[in-house]
Amino acid sequence: MTIDVVAAERFVHANARVLDRHRLAALRGRPADPVLTALRAYRNSDGGFGHALEPDVRTPDSETTCALHALEVLAEVGALGDDMVAPTVDWLAANDVDGGVPFVLPGAAAYPHGPWMVPTPGGSHLTFGIVGVLAAADLEHPWIARATEWCWDKLERPDELNAYWVKYALVFLDAVVDTARAAAVIDGFRPLLDEQGSVPVPGGTADERLTALTLSPHPGSRSRALFTDDQLEVDLDRMARGQHEDGGWTFDWLGWSPGQSAEWRGIVTLRALSALSLNGRISV
């Protein structure tokens, strides 16, 4: 199955944000400094990130989804030692609700946002992702310890876990130090997966689901134990078939504005190139 890498790169250069064009260059081995410069444009004086860094919440103010996205970018380019990280954790600690962080802050309602981007009670699944990413950072902070305990506590009640809770819980479980405890929890997720290794997204579009590669993109990670080689190969084939004639990939959740849709297409195209490269289908 042929993947047109040149067309994908042209799509990114034609359509993606400056940040994501620099991320593409870093994926190809170029220095990370331009990524960090572009990321700083989304940073606020309170230490958090906003300005639609996460395209579905378009407030200029700092948001938890944007903090996670920023940390993911820093991890991607090996820059979790950057001086942006500690103030971001301070900001997250300041927005702690019960050990975890909220999904969306109330101020986002005053700006364009996806219809699902609304506040929910208590800490959210984003906490798993944030703590999982920070596990690779050389940073000691009281909130990280508190949030880690929040994550373990939530995982003692797996009936609360829907698709995105599973996705970000796996980020956490792939990263935490306690290997045996993590492996046991991961194994308990098996009943949540269908025969393709996917989890449907409740309340999403008709075909929206988190597939094996979305749930476990990295070869050799603990979460790969949930999936068979056949499931992963089928999902890689699906991803390869997903390239559009314009060279890019698209997403299966709701496209609710032209700007949001264009930005997400750039991001998911970059994700597809990264996943296909990590899993041996292409070389970028």
Rank of each mutant, 00 (worst) to 15 (best):
T37Y: 05
T37H: 12
T37S: 13
T37G: 11
A38Y: 06
A38P: 09
R40M: 12
A41W: 10
A41Y: 07
A41T: 12
R43F: 00
N44C: 11
N44A: 12
S45Q: 13
S45D: 15
D46N: 13
G47C: 09
G47P: 01
G48M: 10
G48A: 10
G50E: 03
G50D: 05
G50L: 06
H51A: 14
P55R: 06
D56E: 14
D56G: 10
D56P: 04
D56A: 07
V57L: 14
V57E: 14
R58V: 07
T59Y: 03
D61V: 11
T65L: 15
C66I: 04
C66K: 00
C66H: 15
C66E: 02
H69I: 12
A70C: 02
A70T: 03
A70E: 01
A70N: 01
L71P: 04
E72P: 00
V73Y: 02
V73M: 03
A75P: 02
E76G: 13
V77I: 15
V77S: 00
V77C: 09
G78V: 09
A79F: 08
G81T: 06
G81S: 11
G81H: 11
G81R: 04
G81D: 15
D82N: 12
D82L: 10
D83Y: 00
D83W: 01
M84Y: 00
V85P: 05
A86Q: 15
P87V: 13
T88D: 03
T88L: 14
V89G: 06
D90L: 09
D90K: 05
D90S: 09
W91S: 00
A93D: 09
A93S: 13
A93N: 01
N95Q: 05
N95Y: 01
D96L: 09
D96G: 07
V97F: 05
V97W: 06
V97R: 04
D98T: 10
G99L: 08
G99I: 08
G99T: 07
G100N: 02
G100V: 04
V101E: 00
V101F: 05
P102Q: 09
P102I: 09
P102W: 07
V104G: 00
V104E: 01
P106W: 06
P106K: 06
A108V: 13
A108R: 12
A109S: 14
P112E: 06
H113W: 04
H113I: 05
G114E: 03
P115T: 11
P115F: 11
W116T: 08
W116V: 09
V118Q: 13
P119A: 13
T120H: 14
P121M: 11
P121Y: 09
G122C: 10
G122H: 10
G122K: 12
G123I: 08
G123S: 10
S124M: 08
H125C: 07
T127S: 15
F128E: 00
G129Q: 00
G129H: 03
I130S: 00
I130N: 01
V131S: 03
V131R: 10
G132D: 04
G132I: 06
V133L: 04
L134N: 03
A135C: 14
A136F: 10
A137W: 06
A137Q: 06
D138W: 01
D138T: 15
D138P: 01
L139E: 10
L139T: 13
L139R: 11
E140Y: 02
H141K: 08
H141W: 07
H141A: 07
P142R: 11
P142F: 13
